[in-house]
């Protein structure tokens, strides 16, 4: 590995990190704005023009808050909780393709931090570790409400991970690869996976809501029953890390949805743009298109949050085990049958 590649990847990773942070920051503002708009209100509009500086004000406020540590024997775990939550949310972005490639001064830059063959497995592994952030935080808080929230979160995430994994199996059967780069490349033009795997997409979408702890699956932090849930005992920036990690996870999850099912950086007419305006222009447009798709999914997350109430716990479990998992298995069978038929007769 030459040093140029290391520098290139280093710069790329820093840029991705910065963009993820920026998106997470502005997701907090977007959440409040969209909540307000859907409820016929205006939303925060005092900090900067139209509230554009609100995330900075919020961050500053969290930094200035008193750092409170509950009387717990697990001081190390107490700090580890939010750290894991944040780290795991960010780690997933390493394998996501943010675009095809760019030619800069005769040098090809691949717009992906690392292209590994088992990217799908990596994503799942990191997502599964993410639950430890909530579990450890809830456990170390030495508070029964936090512990309840940690229990709920872990059982919910484990249940929905099964359905999520099964819905992805059908996609992998179809595309024949686990590399996100190849999955993205296969969906050229309007050849998006959502048209071939509509059921798989819906199951994956529902599970994404559960995995990111968003409404209607936000039982881990339902204020009415559990105060603040797993972050009841947290204050200052440790609390900020939990909230921030949640929004970062939402951004990454939207990116995964866009890449797996909504054609990643592909858009209709990409080859025409590449012929007429050059390949670089087509790929830059591709990045823009990917971010538009991601923003749409972030909006969708918020839209759903401000539309429906959260599930009861038994409804949550019923939906996960009795509805989504059988549907996902049926989807696998259906996909298998269609692949065999297509191989034989087409």
């Amino acid at each position: 590995m030459d040093s140029a590649l290391i520098i290139e990847k280093g710069i790329f990773i820093v840029v991705i990190f910065a963009i993820t942070m920026l998106m997470a920051m502005y997701s907090t503002l977007a959440e409040r704005k969209i909540a307000a708009w859907l409820q016929d209100r205006i939303g925060p509009n005092r900090a900067g023009k139209g509230g554009i500086l609100q995330p900075l004000a919020d961050g500053l406020k969290l930094f200035a808050k008193e750092e409170f540590m509950p009387d717990t024997p697990n001081k190390f775990l107490f700090i580890l909780g939010p750290a894991i939550s944040m780290t795991m949310a960010l780690l997933t972005s390493a394998v996501l393709p943010w675009g095809d490639k760019l030619e800069i001064a005769g040098h090809t830059v691949i717009l992906q931090a690392t292209d590994i063959d088992v990217a799908m497995l990596y994503v799942f592994a990191v997502l599964s570790v993410g639950v430890y952030g909530i579990m450890i935080g809830g456990w170390a808080s030495n508070n029964k409400y936090s512990l309840m929230a940690a229990l709920r979160a872990s059982s919910q995430l484990i249940s929905y991970e099964v359905a999520m994994g099964l819905s992805i199996v059908a996609l992998i059967m179809m595309s024949g690869t686990m590399s996100l780069r190849e999955i993205a490349a296969q969906q050229e033009g309007m050849n998006w996976n959502v048209f071939y795997q509509p059921l798989g997409f819906i199951i994956f979408l529902v599970c994404s809501f559960a995995e990111t702890n968003r409404t209607p699956f936000d039982l881990a932090e339902c204020e009415a029953e559990l105060i603040g849930g797993h972050h009841t005992e947290y204050s200052s920036m440790k609390m900020g890390f939990y909230l921030f990690g949640e929004y970062a996870a939402m951004f990454i999850s939207s990116a995964i949805l866009a890449i797996l099912y909504f054609g990643a950086y592909n858009y209709p007419g990409m080859s025409w743009v590449a012929e007429n305006w050059g390949a670089n222009m087509a790929n830059i447009l591709g990045i823009v298109v990917l971010f538009i798709k991601i923003c749409f999914f972030i909006f969708f997350y918020m839209w759903v949050r401000w539309t429906i109430p959260r599930f009861r716990y038994d409804q949550l479990m019923n939906l996960g085990w009795k509805m989504l998992i059988p549907l996902a298995i049926a989807n696998i069978v259906l996909t298998g049958v269609i692949i065999i038929i297509a191989d034989k007769y087409l």
Binding site: I34, W37, L38, Q39, D40, R41, I42, I202, W303, V304, W306, T307, I308, L319, M323, L327
Partner: peptide, 22 residues
Amino acid sequence: IYLVAILKGLMITIKHLFKRKV
């Protein structure tokens, strides 16, 4: 599986996005 009811709800809330704010 709640999907139809959720879709109906989504349509109601999206209308409010374009309503005049009071």
